[in-house]
Design a protein around this nucleic acid. Structure first.
Lengths: 211, 211
DNA sequence: TAGATTGTTAATCGATTAACAATC
DNA sequence: TAGATTGTTAATCGATTAACAATC
């Protein structure tokens, strides 16, 4: 255990978490890597390797306790800690994030939304106040914020990120379709390039049945 | 050229496309794999390998013509063909997709939105009509639809997908946070599990500076 | 032509899979 | 106990990087 955890493993963890939660809800108490692999279309070997990056919580001859493994993966993902978020941009993507139903119960709480359009400032979005971006630095000085969600238009994204980093934000979830430039040791950025995934779909449609 | 194209390469293509479009807009005429690699934080080798999956359109001693390469990657991604989409679910994610600004100019056109809430049926979302899901099969019989975008709640996703597949839809862009079950030779599914990427961010925050 | 840079083959690196002894 | 299944090491597979001859 405690070996180096590759990006590939990290990206599979949420899938395990989701599947285990469903098994738990279905009343399944224990599961073997063989059965879990079958259900998730992975090899049992891969599942055991992945889980053992973090230490063995399986039992020989028995498998894994579903609730315990789910709980542990949740901890590894940091879901046992609450996260305080702000959203930059009160457009349609920003609205969708504020309203995303499962975030509150996963510990992700949105404190405020920031926008530059005067008609939006002072309103609320699903109960969350919309402030002027001018008040951003002030707000960050007063409140503890863990994650900034970037939902501003493409052309505003880099400048907004620069402000966030200067104000001490260390984690950004970016929805703007740009490759942002930032100091990697000061801030973690995870991109959701929606257009990219749609283009991957387009590729697969165009090249169906080639492989 | 014309070798097997791995998933890893496919997922990098939209990034190339985006970057080349920006270079083109900036008036850059040609670029070497060395410079492109530097700008995109990749090795020149990888860029040449990736591009050569599809045939050599570089010139020795010169590099690649930006516009030509962009155009060719666009074709490979299938962006030269128009795509007709429908959206399932008129909630906040569905609304965000209808309004996504760059889709129309990339050839992705939304024909209709389907929902089950009576108060939404008959209205419009950014100029696109909202129909009852009851009318789904009828609509698909009358109209040519390439892509269905699944934005329904978690618990309705599987049933909706089943209906889509039964009605002959062969490409689905899924936003519901579930692992859908489907016949892989009948339909291509690309998932956008928003919650997963947020959890990856959470992981990286919790384990900052470990590697 | 000489210099630069590709296309492509070979070497390396990392991730996935297989195997099996340890053990519940 | 015997059977099952893990944790872990070794083997394989695939993807990335390096090298270099071909050529613009």
């Amino acid at each position: 255990m405690a070996r180096y955890v590759s990006e590939a493993v990290i990206r599979r963890l949420p899938g395990y978490y989701r599947h285990l939660r469903e098994l738990e809800a279905a009343g399944v108490v224990s599961i073997s890597s063989r059965d879990l692999g079958e259900q998730m279309h992975q090899t049992p070997s891969q599942i055991r390797q992945d889980i053992n990056c973090f230490g063995g919580f399986g039992r020989q001859g028995y498998g894994y306790n579903v609730s315990e493994l789910k709980e542990r993966i949740g901890e590894i993902l940091g879901l046992d800690q609450p996260h305080r978020m702000i959203i930059l941009g009160a457009g349609s993507i920003g609205s969708a994030i504020v309203r995303y139903p499962t975030f509150p119960m996963e510990g992700f709480r949105t404190l405020a939304v920031f926008d530059s359009a005067p008609e939006k400032i002072g309103t609320e979005l699903a109960g969350v106040p919309v402030y002027s971006v001018d008040a951003l630095e002030d707000f960050l000085r007063r409140e503890t914020v863990d994650i900034a969600v970037l939902c501003v238009p493409r052309d505003a994204a880099q400048a907004t990120l620069d402000r966030l980093v200067a104000a001490g934000i260390t984690a950004v979830w970016n929805f703007a379709p740009v490759d942002l430039v930032y100091p990697p040791d000061e801030v973690v950025v995870v991109n959701v390039h929606l257009s990219d995934t749609l283009q991957v779909l387009s590729y697969k449609m165009a090249h169906r049945g080639e492989a």
